[in-house]
Design a protein around this nucleic acid. Sequence first.
DNA 1: TTATTTTTTTAGGTATGCCTAATTTTAGTA
DNA 2: TACTAAAATTAGGCATACCTAAAAAAATAA
Lengths: 227, 227
Amino acid sequence: MLKTSDEKYLRAIYSVSHSENKQKVSLSDLAYYLDLKPPTVLERLHVLQKEKFISYTKTEGVVLTKSGEKEALNVIRKHRVWETFLHKVCKFGWNEVHEMAEQLQNVNSEKLIDRIYTLSGEPKFDPHGDPIPDKSGKLPVSVRRPLLNSIEGCRCLVLGVNEDSAEFLNYLTDLNIGLNEKLSVEKVFGYDGSLKIKYKNSESVILSPKVAEKILVTCTKHGCACK
Amino acid sequence: MLKTSDEKYLRAIYSVSHSENKQKVSLSDLAYYLDLKPPTVLERLHVLQKEKFISYTKTEGVVLTKSGEKEALNVIRKHRVWETFLHKVCKFGWNEVHEMAEQLQNVNSEKLIDRIYTLSGEPKFDPHGDPIPDKSGKLPVSVRRPLLNSIEGCRCLVLGVNEDSAEFLNYLTDLNIGLNEKLSVEKVFGYDGSLKIKYKNSESVILSPKVAEKILVTCTKHGCACK
DNA sequence: TTATTTTTTTAGGTATGCCTAATTTTAGTA
DNA sequence: TACTAAAATTAGGCATACCTAAAAAAATAA
Ligand SMILES: [Mn+2]
Ligand SMILES: [Mn+2]
Ligand SMILES: [Mn+2]
Ligand SMILES: [Mn+2]
């Protein structure tokens, strides 16, 4: 049985290695992500390596082994299933579920996860639009891109976000932007990359590039020139 | 915020001090209950005392302070609310919920407890018939006594059990005895205190005193001579 | 290539939470 | 009361999980 702390590290390694423009997970990246100091993390990496969940060299950084990746996907599954359950069954907002799921994901009971997943209606994506791995670790695919990469006139659908923090999600909620919202990009400001978007047939706001980068969308006009 | 381990100790102290014929919680009682060695527990008691949750002297044993009792009741509330939720909403058997609740009770979110309690229909008792404290720590009362103390001819109703272990609950389930079962005591064997009981208008079994002691009932004939 | 900065590693420290073995204290029995 | 058994305490050890400060190695810039 995996320790809570192993799960935390494996999930972190997976997340960091799959985040934008990161082809190498360095010790310091990981320490920063986990909000721990490098010596603490290094110590743990040695253990995880002995347990054959990762391989680590200072030049290559941290790489998950097959078994490490399997475990990481399992924690991610637990996390996302809990988030889904909290949202669908317990009716919490998408901005409230992450913190609770963070604690709940450590509960050890395959049977419980199965049960709450069933009660949630077995969706393929969590309340933030992130794919829920199946038991074998397979992820449903969804083609998404940051809203930031839009060209003027593009129409698109919000499929997810790149950040789970309550602050960010609260901001979107304040703007009345949620999952499955249809947006049209009215203007792209070349100066800093801000976007003016219109939605709900009425509202229109200007989003900073920092925000637009974290909203994941798919174009709805086919053959759209966005990348 | 309380640590998981504080909660464990406070709950244990509360349980031991409220169990039958215990007017003093000694260090060794507590160590036995927690399945830890006395020096380990002693060390922790010193900390809990510094935190003003208990008072401890070797002669008086461990006593919860007002604040310690409040915390203990809060953990008990969390535990029982989770058990109720797992039973009512997730449809787990009464023999399956304790283990999971043991882990879930450590999750810190008042709001989550409130929500799942509402979803469970806000019953006053958990799946084992144990009272669920309200937020202020008040326990609903229920007058119960061990089935063992029955006299011949007594008719009673199962209101709870004194043990949460899956083995015990599985045994009762095998016997077809559950909460709210109506029993009639056909015979009391003086030799060892075994009881022959009849229920469901047909089945009849002999229960050992060890088992009969752990089934909690209330007499249904009023003015019954059981104590 | 050398100098500077960043990253990694080592060394050593603290707190928690568990243990065994030995000792002291308390309580029960003769 | 004196002896004995049980309970509590002390001492010292181990693993985990965190830290800071300093040294070594690697990467970057001049
Ligand atoms: Mn999340
Ligand atoms: Mn999510
Ligand atoms: Mn229980
Ligand atoms: Mn219970």
